[in-house]
Design a protein around this nucleic acid. Structure first.
Lengths: 120, 120
DNA sequence: AATAGTATTATTCAACTTGTATAGTACAAA
DNA sequence: TTTGTACTATACAAGTTGAATAATACTATT
């Protein structure tokens, strides 16, 4: 095998990696401020430097699910164009969930041990 | 819905999150030094503070796959007890893949913008 | 010699998430 | 009326892990 396949391996890995990350990114987008789907998508792609590119359908699907279990909610507002938009935001439970998740899963990467492995 | 379901939501989220993370953790374990399956499992559980608890079968499955595409390799060594062990390590291609992955996907969390969102 | 423990390979099914495709509803502005 | 925007809903393929199961092979103990 040659190095030619590295880009494919990388994007394949990122595809898998993304599946577990999307919830986190949606939550980070909402923590940044109330948004509707288009804005969430734009936020995620921009902040992840296009590492995470998500389909709107996936966002709708997830947001409906989160709404159902009461970790996000929305307020309907008029947009500049077209029909009304649903501006999603984190509920208190969603906010608490995110904090716990970050504490347990993300801050690991800031620990000295893991950080040393990451950096060299 | 009450807050009673928060622990379930958190572990359910972590379950999903883990699916994309396992490859990264295996690679970090091998970057730390050549290891056989039991040691990889122990490394991951310890360093992730039991956030990631992986089945040995998943490790075997993944390692065979990585071997097949030449991003890891192994050397057979005798153990203190029992039959021979396969000590896995990253190939040059695996090392390069890991570096690229970290650069694109992990270092985001160290950027000022994302870091601010994570921290408050 | 027989047994128990260790290390590994291999397969299958359930559960879950995303991409993709498809179909449909609803509203606003030109 | 047409076009564009926002959203709902379903279905299938692809990929990953957990869990269960079955099997091989070597070592050390009894």
């Amino acid at each position: 095998m040659t190095k030619d396949i590295l880009p494919d391996l990388l994007s394949s890995w990122e595809e898998t990696y993304k599946k577990g990350q999307l919830t986190l990114w949606i939550f980070l987008a909402l923590k940044d401020g109330s948004k509707y789907v288009d804005e969430i998508k734009e936020f995620i792609e921009r902040k992840s430097k296009n590492t995470i590119s998500c389909e709107e359908q996936s966002l709708y699907r997830n947001l409906r699910k989160y709404k159902h279990i009461d970790i996000v909610s929305f307020a309907i507002k008029k947009g500049n164009k077209g029909p009304n938009r649903k501006y999603y935001f984190l509920t208190d439970m969603g906010t608490e969930l995110l904090e716990k998740f970050i504490e347990r899963n993300i801050k690991l990467f800031f620990s000295t041990e893991i950080n040393n492995l990451l950096k060299k």
